[in-house]
């Protein structure tokens, strides 16, 4: 049993757990940054910036995730390669599109054709993180935009009456206060993001779902030292437990964070906290 669980193939599934955690760890802050930028842009008084922010939120939220993941990743990869192609191989005369084939010169390949496999995998991973960040950033932008609108006008007015500039009221009053309104929405997004990680599979990254399916599949004794029947149910059960534990831990953490952010805020929950302390 111990031998079975430590085969090279099982090591791959353990690695893929780390891949998923790493993806979440990088994507969440990046998406938050995208969201913050998107929301700030949408609020901007400069019309083109505002259009850009609103356009980003509306378009990305409107496109189905799967379509976005399938289309955008391929398009992004090809845009990078075409750009590199034009810069690095200006003498190339053959067309890039030859029938069904997408052909760029060897030097323009991204990553280079002779790069080791881990470079290809990291590149794929980076593209995945970027795509996830764009998609979830749009949702986060919408949440943050709403949260910014929810901060009572009187709070900002107070700041203005003290002579703060609009930049100062934004950073010192609006942003610290809006988190408490944004957190419930953002925590929802975090939960969805956790569950969306199997979409990695669509992007050609061998994530835990791939390995669970591969390891659980029927194995005949000719091709393995550990033949077994259809064990996919058990592997997927393990995944279920993993995701349940993970979301539960997230919930608890987010609840604590919420309690902290509420402290001293002019909201119902903040008021309740204040009363609980004084009595």
């Amino acid at each position: 049993m111990a031998c079975y669980l430590t085969t090279g193939k099982h090591m791959s599934i353990y690695w893929s757990v780390l891949t998923v955690l790493l993806l979440l760890g990088i994507t969440a802050p990046t998406a938050l940054a995208f969201g913050f930028a998107g929301a700030s842009a949408a609020r901007s008084r400069i019309a083109p910036v505002s259009w850009l922010g609103r356009g980003y939120i509306a378009v990305v939220r409107g496109v189905p995730d799967i379509a976005f993941f399938l289309f955008f990743v391929i398009a992004l990869d090809q845009i990078i390669e075409v750009t590199r192609h034009h810069i690095l191989c200006p003498d190339w005369v053959e067309p890039i599109r030859q029938g069904n084939d997408f052909v760029v010169c060897q030097a323009a390949k991204m990553p280079l054709g002779n790069a080791p496999q881990w470079v290809h995998e990291s590149y794929g991973f980076a593209i995945a993180v970027f795509t996830f960040a764009i998609v979830f950033g749009a949702f986060a932008a919408n949440v943050i935009q709403g949260a910014m609108a929810a901060v009572p006008r009187g709070q900002i007015e107070t700041g203005e009456s003290y002579g703060m500039t609009s930049r100062q009221t934004f950073w010192r009053i609006l942003v610290p206060q809006m988190w408490v309104y944004a957190l419930p929405g953002l925590s929802n997004l975090w939960m969805v993001l956790i569950k969306a990680t199997p979409l990695l599979f669509l992007l050609g990254i061998q994530d835990i779902v791939y390995w669970a399916r591969e390891l659980g599949g029927i194995k005949t004794s000719r091709f393995t030292d550990y033949p077994h029947g259809d064990w996919r149910m058990w592997y997927f059960l393990a995944l279920l437990v993993f995701y349940l534990i993970f979301t539960r831990v997230s919930e608890i953490t987010l609840e604590r964070l919420m309690a902290r952010l509420t402290l001293g805020q002019a909201t119902t929950a903040g008021e309740a906290q204040r009363k609980a302390r004084t009595t």
Partner: peptide, 11 residues
């Protein structure tokens, strides 16, 4: 299998 598969070592 037998054409192509991932063996126990993950290769």
């Amino acid at each position: 299998p037998p054409y192509n598969f991932i063996n126990d070592a993950g290769e």
